[in-house]
Design a protein around this nucleic acid. Structure first.
Lengths: 214, 214
DNA sequence: CAGAAAAATGAATGAGTATTCATTCATACT
DNA sequence: AGTATGAATGAATACTCATTCATTTTTCTG
């Protein structure tokens, strides 16, 4: 028990680390070959381990995929909360931080987006995937709606509701991901963020300055 | 040759009709089981035909999928052009027609969206799919950008570029599709369109009235 | 109507792959 | 050191499914 906690070397820790390693390999394989084209042999190979390893740690391919999606959602949620946390206080800063997060290299890169879209493509036929996606979506939506609500109250804006603004913003970022995935060549982080800001500055002029002006 | 043109009964026509029938069946199967889960037996069964029928008409599963995506894109493009055509003249009317199209039941229904997302999920690993998606995307983008350009010129708007507005709008509609697919229960056509309009009325106030006002 | 051509069938094939499991290897405890 | 326990291997298994093709059915043509 003495050396159990020495540099995270416990049995449980080792197991968790291996599972994470396999999940990472799965994401790479999905990005490379799609969910349909990915095989367990691919995953094992990517992780530098042997054939049966996935079934040993995850029981089945289905389980592996579900846990991969959960990990992806968890990862996103963590970054989301960190972004909100950094912009502590001001709702406007929070909103901007979320928009920036969604076009940031950490989130908005073809390899990651490919995995998201792969799962979204299966949402209709797999209730489990739908549930996970729905959960993270609702959470995102609620937070954004809350921030918009605060901003609207603070600025006494008359011509927009929190619902409308939130829906417009969340849709916009989700849609930007599609362009980034489909046309990564032409896609440009700055332009994308400017497009979002063009909405913010027009709808909430007291809280956001247009990209041109300092 | 006399009865060849009698109610579309020629050899070539019959062939084309059968191919279309198989493509329709494919879309249903993709929506029901995903691209990965769909089998050629499923498609044949859905069409009420026999095992080998797909290979007879399409040579391979890959071909079937490619042609299905092409058909989907073609279908969308046709509706797109019809919408633009109806709103002849005014760019503002054209833009609104496109936005309405994208949330209309003809386009924005889970069964159709599931197919789009299924293909998008494979875009990263299949250059062929990417090419088709990219093409329809660019076309859409160009048209919207042109309309925005005209509107901006006409209204002498200062604080937004055609690029920004077009990107915001196309992203928004794409993003709305995701919510419609993932949370079809809560999703509401009117709210979705209102969200888009909230952008239009704020950015192009001289051309669009807010949803509340007549 | 006869014969030819095209379309459709569905059983058989074989390639690919998730899963199993007997065996080997590594590590922790006494 | 010696033993027990968990981790990992990879060959063998069982199964799914795209594809083929010999045969049957339908449709066209003279």
């Amino acid at each position: 028990m003495a050396q159990a906690q020495k540099m995270g070397g416990g049995r449980a820790e080792a197991r968790a680390k291996r599972r994470q390693q396999l999940i990472d390999a799965t994401m790479k394989c999905i990005a490379r070959k799609g969910i349909g084209g990915m095989t367990l042999a691919d995953v094992a190979g990517e992780a530098g381990l042997s054939q049966g390893i996935v079934n040993l740690h995850f029981e089945s391919k289905d389980n592996l995929l579900r846990e991969t999606l959960e990990a992806l959602a968890g990862e996103y949620r963590a970054q989301f909360e960190r972004a909100i946390g950094r912009a502590d206080g001001s709702p406007a800063a929070g909103l901007l931080a979320l928009m920036e997060l969604d076009v940031s290299p950490g989130i908005c890169q073809p390899a990651k987006l490919a995995v998201w879209f792969a799962f979204w493509g299966e949402v209709k036929s797999r209730p489990t995937y739908r549930k996970i996606c729905d959960e993270i979506d609702s959470y995102y939506d609620d937070v954004v709606k809350g921030l918009c609500s605060d901003i609207i109250a603070d600025g006494a804006y008359q011509h927009v509701t929190a619902n409308q603004a939130a829906m417009a913003l969340t849709s916009m970022t989700n849609g930007l991901w599609l362009s980034c995935l489909v046309s990564p060549q032409e896609w440009n982080r700055h332009e994308a963020l400017d497009a979002v800001k063009s909405y913010l500055t027009h709808v909430f002029p007291k809280h956001f300055r247009s990209p041109g002006e300092s």
